[in-house]
Structure formats: C-alpha cells, structure tokens
C-alpha cells in the first residue's frame, strides 16, 4: 500500500467506518442513558428543575474557589489542555472544511501560527495532565487502563497533527494519513470509554442542577 493509497483509505473507507461507529455508538449510549428514565419528584418544589439544570450546565464550568486552591494543578492543566485543544480542532482552516463537508456549516478560521501555538500549548498541557495523573495520590489511585488508553488516543491526533502541520519525519501524505488514522481510532473508541463525557457531562450537569435546584439550591 502506497502512502497515497493509505491516505485515500483514511479519507475514504477509514473515515466511513470510524464515523459509523462514532455516531452510532454515541447515539446508542445516550439513548441507553436517557431511556433508563427517572422518577418524577413528588416532593413540593422549591425551585425549577429545568432552569436550575440548564444553569448548572454553564456554572459548573467555573471551579469552586476552595477546590481550586486545593487542586489547582489538576484544574489548570485540565482547562488549558481542553481549551488549547479546541482551538486547533475547531479553528484550523482544513478542519473547518472537514466540518463544512460533513455538517454543512462553516465559520472563520484562525491563522496557522495561532493554531500552531495552541497545539503546542495543548501538547504541553497534556503531558502535564499525564504527569499529574501519575503523581497525584488520588488520581494515581483512580487511574485504570482505560484512563491511560484514552490519554494516549487523545494525545496521538494532537501530536500527529502537529507533525503533519510541520512535516516532521515523514512525507506529507504519510503524516496526513497517520493523523487521520489516529483520529479514526479515537472516534471508534469514543462511545465506549470515558470520552463520552464530552456529551454526557451536559446530561450529568443538568441532572445535578435539577436535583439541587428542585430543593432551591444553586449547584
């Protein structure tokens, strides 16, 4: 298989397979959660479930002050990694073209140098996240194989993307193909790992806010 063939496979059948698994997996997982249902609360309400649930989806993004002080490394590295990762993912022109082709919506891109800078920040933050995971007492206790696998599979698209952007080591078609394949692997494992938090955290935060909000507490 030549590198162009590999790239064509990654852009064609590979992407098809990954997309099917990803979309089907995510939809099944979300339905699997929602269809379990939840009993209606029969107690007299002190606040609204819906509005408090929606508010918590937003407010839970901001860490509590004391918790921030106690876990600043975890919180800062986590935030930096997530935000810095979203910049290349959503604002690199070729990525926007991808989304445009698939979902038909597009938005303005950021210059290559900006995207590059954020990719570097994200890579550094991800390494910090890993070091923190392996050294922080609680995280080390909680860490299982899946956590490390998911870290690796998230790291690979970033680093291969960086290599492809700068053409390091291999020819462009190979680098692009490897980058795409790494994304495809990520998409395939996505629905079956904690990567699902990307979607389910909205549900979780809503439930949290709804449960507390019903009792009149802004959580």
């Amino acid at each position: 298989m030549t590198e162009i063939e590999l790239l064509s496979w990654a852009r064609g059948p590979g992407l098809q397979i990954a997309t099917i698994v990803f979309v089907a997996g995510v939809v099944i997982r979300i339905l699997e959660i929602l269809l379990l249902g939840r009993k209606a609360n029969l107690a007299e309400a002190k606040g609204s479930e819906m509005s408090n649930g929606l508010r918590t989806i937003v407010t839970r993004t901001i860490p509590d002050k004391t918790t921030f002080k106690r876990s600043s490394v975890t919180i800062v590295s986590g935030y930096v990694f997530h935000i810095a990762m979203f910049i290349p993912l959503f604002f690199f022109a070729p990525h926007i073209l991808f989304f445009k082709d698939v979902i038909g919506v597009s938005w303005p891109s950021l210059p290559g140098a900006v995207v590059d800078a954020f990719a570097v920040i994200s890579i550094i933050a991800m390494i910090a996240v890993l070091i923190n995971r392996l050294t922080n007492r609680v995280m080390r206790y909680l860490t299982n194989f899946e956590d490390l696998l998911v870290w690796l599979l998230t790291f690979l698209p970033l680093i291969t993307g960086y290599f492809a952007f700068h053409r390091i080591g291999l020819t462009a078609p190979s680098l692009l193909a490897i980058h795409l394949l790494s994304v495809e692997v990520l998409l395939i494992v996505f629905p079956f790992t904690k990567l699902m938090h990307t979607f389910t955290l909205f549900l979780a935060r809503w439930y949290n806010g709804a449960i507390s909000g019903y009792r009149g507490v802004a959580s």
């Binding site: 979309v23 089907a24 699997e32 070729p94 082709d101």
Partner: peptide, 30 residues
Amino acid sequence: KALSMPTDNLTQTLKYAAAGAVAAGVTVGV
C-alpha cells in the same frame, strides 16, 4: 475537494448511522 475533506459522502453515512443507532438505542433502552 479539499484535502481535509472526506472523500466519500460522510453526511449520508452520518444520517444512516444515526437512524440505525436510534433503532438500536431504543432496543437497548427497552
């Protein structure tokens, strides 16, 4: 077609996959 675009029609795949998944998801839910 830009290099970063999928070569096949992913939108179609997406729709079929989602439709199939809704059926499967409902089954799992039941």
